[in-house]
């Protein structure tokens, strides 16, 4: 299952304070461990909310609100997308994530998957036939 692990923002991040070299190194090492375990799908950092915008939907009306936004602790400063076997595994991994600014919160959320392997199992021969008829070995 895939998880999105979100880094909640801090006043420093919102103020545009960039991570230190040590912090970047620690983050790089952590990401490399995740990658070498074959678990990391994506990971990105986000600019402060002052560079962002919100669109409010109210019936037919659309209202655009430019950042920054006040509720710092509710904002997202970055995220990982990881593939884990369970929520427990995700928790175990991210307990070891480097900590920024002596604090902060990570939020782990499971991603909905379109595929549902359980009900989609096909007998091998039929599968081979399907593959052949459409002419793709790698299909």
């Amino acid at each position: 299952m895939r998880f999105m692990v979100m880094v909640r923002s801090t006043p420093d991040i919102e103020a545009g304070v960039l991570p230190t070299t040590e912090e970047l190194t620690a983050m790089g090492e952590f990401n490399e461990r995740l990658a070498k375990a074959g678990l990391l799908l994506e990971g990105e950092g986000l600019h402060p909310s002052s560079k962002g915008a919100r669109i409010r939907f109210d019936g037919e009306n659309r209202r655009v609100i430019d950042g920054p936004f006040a509720e710092t602790k509710e904002l997202i400063a970055g995220y990982w997308i990881v593939k884990m076997q369970s929520k427990e595994e995700a928790i175990e991994w991210f307990r070891q994530a480097p900590c920024f600014n002596n604090g902060g919160t990570l939020e782990i959320r499971q991603i909905f998957e379109a595929e549902d392997f359980g009900e989609n199992i096909t007998p091998e021969l039929r599968e081979q036939e399907a593959r052949l008829r459409i002419g793709g070995l790698g299909t």
Binding site: E115, N120, I121, T122, P123, R126, A130, I134, G136
Partner: peptide, 15 residues
Amino acid sequence: RSAARAQTDGTPVLL
């Protein structure tokens, strides 16, 4: 293609 390649009863769906 996992989710699309078979019906719920396991019958394969051609590409």
